[in-house]
């Protein structure tokens, strides 16, 4: 049923944005983390998404929606701050802090929230159309 597939596309978008918010929350929580299991400071994580292939079948458009492809690490270098008293400071007195930029993360967080809302609006519109179509019989 094409109606329920459009619901599924919207719900898939919401899934992705929820995951994005979780990743941003993790980035923010680790904004000052100087040590990870692998050693070195925490690296900012990025969500990689991929559009599922869309197509026509039996004359109906089948939207593929979106899916999570993986989580990558931001390859940009860590921030170096001179703080010789810090226990993680190197021989020259510099501490490597995560490459997390708070302003960037906040903007991405807002965008994720807005995209989530947009998916809900698309969902509600599809639902409204279905309910209106049912009113034809009344």
């Amino acid at each position: 049923m094409s109606l329920f597939s459009s619901f599924a596309v919207s719900a898939g978008g919401m899934d992705v944005e929820r995951t994005r918010v979780e990743i941003i929350a993790n980035n923010l929580a680790n904004a000052q983390t100087t040590r990870t299991e692998r050693g070195g400071p925490f690296r900012r994580q990025l969500l990689r998404t991929m559009a599922r292939p869309a197509g026509y079948a039996d004359g109906a458009f089948l939207g593929g929606g979106v899916e999570i492809k993986g989580i990558d690490e931001d390859p940009s270098p860590p921030r170096l701050i001179y703080d010789p008293s810090h226990p993680e400071a190197n021989a020259r007195g510099y501490v490597s802090l995560p490459n997390v930029n708070l302003v960037n993360e906040m903007v991405n967080l807002l965008v994720a929230g807005r995209v989530y809302e947009a998916n809900i609006t698309a969902f509600q519109e599809a639902k409204g159309m279905a309910l209106k179509a049912l009113e034809m019989g009344r």
Partner: peptide
């Protein structure tokens, strides 16, 4: 996820409405 629960509920609601019609 909450939205998955809402999705399931809406699907059930709309199909029930269609059945009622």
């Amino acid at each position: 996820e909450i939205h998955q629960v809402m999705l399931a509920m809406e699907e059930a609601d709309i199909s029930l409405q269609l059945l009622l019609q």
